[in-house]
Every structure is written in C-alpha cells, then in structure tokens.
Amino acid sequence: MKKINTIILALCFTTLSFGQNAIKTEKSELEALIIKSFDEIWSELNSKNIDQYYTKDFLLLENGEVWNNDSITNYLDKAVLKKPIPTRVNSIEIIDVKVSNGMAWIAYKNQAVFTVDHKIIRKAYWLESATAILTENGWKLQMLHSTRVKNE
C-alpha cells in the first residue's frame, strides 16, 4: 500500500512539474512575441511581418484611435518613404503574463528611443496590454491597448 501511495504521489508531483514548465515556456514565448513584434514590425517599419505576429482581426487601441492591420500597413508603408528613417530601439519590461486555455494577456511597459545619425531625436513611453491566442502557427497577438505615458 505504501508503494502505491508513493507511486501516486510521485506521478502527481511529476505532472505538476511538467505543467509548471509548460506555463513557463508559454510565458517565455509570449514575452518573445511582444518583443519580436515591436522589433520586426515597428522598428523595421515592415508591414510584411504583420501576418506573422497579428491575427487577421487584430486591433490596436492607441491614444483614442482604433487601428487594424490595414491601417497599420498604410502607416508603415508611408513611414518608410520619409527620409531620414529614424532607428527605433525598443525596451520592453514585462509586468505580468497570464495564460489559460489557449488565450493569454500580457501587461508591459514599452519604451522606444528614436535616433538619426546616432543622435536621439525622440523618446516615447507607453503602458500597454495585449491579448494573444494560440493558433496552429503558434501564439499571435489579437489586440494591443496602448496608453502613452509622459516622458520621464
């Protein structure tokens, strides 16, 4: 009887351990999703990367405006034409990530530093949250809500 109880206990702890590792892995994937999406869409001004990181029905709520993939594409395609193109470096500080049943939300602070010829021309700060869903192609952002924070 003691052997059976020991085996059952061992199985329970092993299952819990695997579950915790899966959650840690998902949280890491979601943190990477946020960082890469900003780097590969907004820093690179590359609208071709939208499908890789955003769902088809993605919404960006920023500063009282509602953007979708089409309006983001239009913005990025116009921004590429303006010269000189500033270099944008993002700093993302994750506040929290919650994952449940193929859905997630992420809260984070976002800072972007814009430079031209290695001179800072602008700094911007946001407090943001995002929702993501697990698709057959991995995690994708479904919505992002952005609130500008005064420059420090």
Score class of each variant (00 low, 15 high):
4 I>S: 09
4 I>F: 11
4 I>K: 08
8 I>W: 09
9 L>N: 10
12 C>L: 15
15 T>Y: 12
15 T>G: 08
18 F>D: 07
19 G>M: 09
19 G>Q: 12
19 G>I: 03
24 K>Q: 15
24 K>R: 15
27 K>D: 00
28 S>H: 15
30 L>F: 04
34 I>P: 06
35 I>F: 14
36 K>F: 08
37 S>N: 07
40 E>Y: 07
42 W>Q: 04
44 E>I: 03
44 E>R: 12
46 N>Y: 01
47 S>A: 08
48 K>Y: 03
48 K>Q: 12
48 K>I: 00
49 N>I: 00
51 D>Q: 09
52 Q>C: 06
53 Y>P: 01
58 F>E: 06
59 L>I: 02
59 L>G: 07
59 L>Y: 05
59 L>N: 13
60 L>M: 13
62 E>F: 07
64 G>T: 05
67 W>V: 00
68 N>H: 04
68 N>D: 13
68 N>K: 05
68 N>Y: 06
69 N>P: 01
70 D>K: 15
70 D>E: 14
73 T>E: 05
74 N>E: 11
74 N>L: 10
74 N>A: 08
74 N>G: 07
75 Y>K: 11
75 Y>N: 12
76 L>V: 01
77 D>K: 10
77 D>G: 05
78 K>R: 15
78 K>I: 03
79 A>M: 10
80 V>E: 13
80 V>T: 12
85 I>E: 14
88 R>Q: 12
89 V>D: 12
90 N>V: 01
92 I>M: 12
93 E>I: 14
94 I>M: 06
95 I>G: 10
97 V>R: 09
100 S>L: 10
100 S>Y: 10
100 S>A: 11
103 M>A: 01
104 A>N: 01
105 W>A: 00
106 I>H: 00
108 Y>C: 09
108 Y>G: 08
108 Y>A: 10
109 K>Y: 15
110 N>M: 13
110 N>H: 15
112 A>C: 11
113 V>H: 04
113 V>D: 08
115 T>W: 00
116 V>Y: 03
117 D>T: 00
118 H>W: 08
118 H>A: 08
119 K>C: 02
119 K>R: 07
120 I>C: 05
120 I>R: 08
122 R>F: 06
124 A>N: 12
125 Y>L: 12
125 Y>W: 12
128 E>Y: 01
129 S>C: 06
130 A>P: 03
131 T>R: 00
132 A>M: 04
134 L>E: 11
135 T>H: 02
135 T>R: 10
135 T>L: 04
138 G>P: 03
138 G>E: 07
138 G>V: 02
142 Q>L: 02
143 M>D: 05
144 L>F: 04
144 L>I: 01
145 H>G: 03
146 S>G: 04
147 T>F: 14
147 T>W: 11
148 R>S: 14
148 R>H: 13
148 R>C: 09
149 V>L: 14
149 V>R: 12
150 K>Q: 14
150 K>M: 11
150 K>R: 14
151 N>C: 09
151 N>A: 13
